[in-house]
């Protein structure tokens, strides 16, 4: 990777671009199952536009980021470090972790918060090949009746939801598409 690609690909106009990106992230977290477009950055492969934009919107020197599996490359590390200053961390210490579901590994290694501070938990950004409003049925806060979302691993996510109010929260990214699954959502595999 040359310096040119490392230094490019960030927000063109950070305050405005990040405001739109956050609004998309907030909307999907408040309404599990909803898919929104999110863009504004050109991250190095294999990071998706949605995941890269989300990282630049939420991460800074105060957040530890875990790059899982194939994302842990020089190019991604340098790009993320240049644009956010976020320290790279191992899974068990991460505030944000990004990677494919396989690469992220078992959920039990991530922080789930403490009973007195359930907010001190990891947010996982899961890179997906496919993201659709189909599959597992979701109910709970933010959902009027039932929502549907293609989830990578229903039993593991059900186990995470069972930890409520502790647990991890998830964003799912696919190209420039973004969805979310907070720990408060109840998941029914039947659909």
């Amino acid at each position: 990777m040359n310096a040119q690609t490392q230094f490019s690909g960030g927000f063109k106009n950070a305050p405005i671009d990040a405001a739109y990106a956050f609004r998309a992230a907030m909307t999907v977290m408040a309404r599990p199952g909803v898919i929104r477009l999110i863009s504004g950055t050109q991250p190095p492969a294999p990071l998706s536009v949605a995941a890269g934009t989300l990282l630049l919107t939420l991460c800074d020197p105060d957040t530890r980021v875990h790059l899982a599996g194939g994302l842990n490359t020089d190019a991604v590390r340098q790009w993320l470090t240049f644009h956010t200053g976020a320290p790279i961390a191992v899974a068990s210490e991460a505030d944000f972790a990004v990677g494919t579901w396989q690469a992220l590994g078992t959920l039990t290694q991530y922080r789930i918060g403490t009973p007195e501070y359930p907010d001190r938990s990891a947010t996982l950004i899961v890179e997906c090949d496919d993201l659709q409003q189909a599959g597992a049925a979701l109910t709970g806060p933010g959902i009027k009746d039932t929502a549907h979302l293609s989830l990578p691993d229903v039993p593991a996510l059900q186990a995470n939801a069972a930890l409520y109010p502790l647990g991890c929260d998830f964003f799912f990214t696919c190209d420039d598409r973004l969805a979310a699954l907070p720990r408060s959502t109840l998941i029914n595999a039947e659909g």
Partner: peptide
């Protein structure tokens, strides 16, 4: 921007644990 990111992270965790 750094302040907004900190607030935005808090809002997302707040939405994930309603009422906390």
């Amino acid at each position: 921007e750094q302040t907004k990111r900190m607030i935005r992270r808090a809002i997302l965790k707040g939405l994930a644990v309603p009422g906390y």
